[in-house]
Design a protein around this nucleic acid. Sequence first.
RNA 1: GAGCCGUUAGCUCAGAUGGAAGAGCACCUGACUUUUAAUCAGGGGGUCCUGGGUUCGAGUCCCAGACGGCUCACCA
Length: 604
Amino acid sequence: MPERAVAAQEPRHRDADSEGEAPRDRREEAARRALGARRDQKGYRLRQSDPHVHAAPVPADQGPSHGGGDRQRRGRDGRQPRALHQGVPALGPGPRRVMSDDANEIVQQRRETLEALRARGIDPFGGRYPVTHWARRLAERLGAASEDELKGFGPVSLAGRIVSKRHMGKACFAHIQDQTGRIQLYARADALGDDYACFTDLDVGDFIGVTGEMMRTRTGELTVAVKSFTFLAKALRPLPEKWHGLRDVERRYRQRYVDLIVNADARAVFLLRSRIIARLRAFLEARGFIEVETPMMQPIPGGAIARPFVTHHNALGMDLYLRIAPELYLKRLLVGGFDRVYEINRSFRNEGIDTQHNPEFTMLEFYQAYADYADLMDLTEEMFTDLAQSLLGRLALTWGEHAIDLTPPWRRLAFFDGVSAALGMTVTPETPAAPLAAAARARGIDLGAVRGALGDVPPWKLWKEVFEALVEPTLVLPTFVIDFPIELSPLAKKKREHPQLVDRFELFVGTRELANAYSELNDPIDQLGRFREQAALLARGDEEAHWLDEDYVRALEYGMPPAAGEGIGIDRLTMLLANQQSIREVILFPHLRPEGRADAPEAP
RNA sequence: GAGCCGUUAGCUCAGAUGGAAGAGCACCUGACUUUUAAUCAGGGGGUCCUGGGUUCGAGUCCCAGACGGCUCACCA
């Protein structure tokens, strides 16, 4: 199998050379001159001194004998050439920060190399390359192999990005990196012939395909002895430093592609995230759940309490909201007869941005008919331990300064027990507001924030405030907070034995809420009543109230099986398993303000 | 939205008290056929985030702004 694949993919530049007959020599001659130009740059630059060469804009990809040399000379005589450069109309006054290093010396040199390759008939941006092996698989398979095994292994073809290069005269070492990792290449002048010069002219950052035999160097490193190679993509910009990588946090987020190239730990985080999601799907599918997709643009943003993003549909002439939760649609599917459904996708909340919040975030929501919230506590313990065990191989995690053991069973703390302990008094739904407020104030809670425009503070706002301020910060080990007051849960089922509480839990790990679940309210009359209470709050100007969704009530009127539903924040779950403190470290492209100067006009 | 901190070469970072912008890596030239952050010799490279101000003189001091980070506030 490897033999055939290799035979089929001789290096492209060879093909190109042998296709041309008469022009071949001329092309090679041109290429030699062009490649030589780079080496002779210094002399060339010294010869060129005529200032008028700056007057005309030079195409960005101009060959080495035109644009490159004189542009490089620019910095030498101070600011004047830069002013001329700014005067070039094509570049304009737009936001230049993103592209400002076009004039950089290294970029210019690489453009020249690129043109030299083209002049030689080589396509620097290649095409398909039949890959037979990946770097890490080779290391896994041959890491401990004997010399004889390596010799008998046969040819391998890999493709990837050159991430380091050590030129040693008539031999040259490099590492290429593919999706799985890195492997060393060893190129020899006697093995590559004319192509050797091409190999040593490769820049760190270039993509190549390479074919060769496996070997081990004197220092024991598994290495591909290069027999042939082909250009797949030329890199015009230099990579960050090999030793420190890219440290600037802003650039790591804005240019995640560079972060992923040079920072292996960043790559590992997103690989883990991908595996978490795949494992969750497998976990749910194995239990009979089916994956569905429900609207992200909704006429009524429901299922949670949050400020939505508004967008507009032109043809319909109507505003739509980016969903704040998929909940109400997933429960419509329970009505429709899908007993176990789940969705893994984005929700959007138009609220603050910090280390725990991104405007768009990924949630797993799942619903199981004929189950209740206690079933989901068991399921959640299973799910989390399955993830940790299968992906990390352990249940004992480190998260920042915290040691977190996921071994079940997890603590279960009733909401009012938590509030009572925090305030040093017995608190129930019947406790009057006045002594509650006094006790909260005595513990340093600022009640001004909850009073708002509503005048007197309803007791449940006090409970919530006390819980968030005094209880949540203590919930480091996995804890199910259970039995919430009904006022905080307009979509949850009442407890039979205590109708002022609902069958609900929130899972806290490392003081952060990771999951929220309840036995779903399936009584349409009760649901309509609670929606109306919420609507009244909305009408009084309380933004923290739920919208009334009449079609959802109508759906319940057809009958929804008793069910339990749960939402799990995938970003936060990933943070926990990857030991990351900022949500931006687990989102590939977190939201940032646009880069560039505010006073620069927008590009047309 | 508030407070604190940061922004200097492609990258990572130094630049007391205001007085001619530096290092390492990367890059270029040369040497080097099993190197490992290869080594050795030589060389080039700067809008010190932007705009004002103070000063004989500003990377440094003052004011305003941009972007980012961290703490708050809001939330998941």
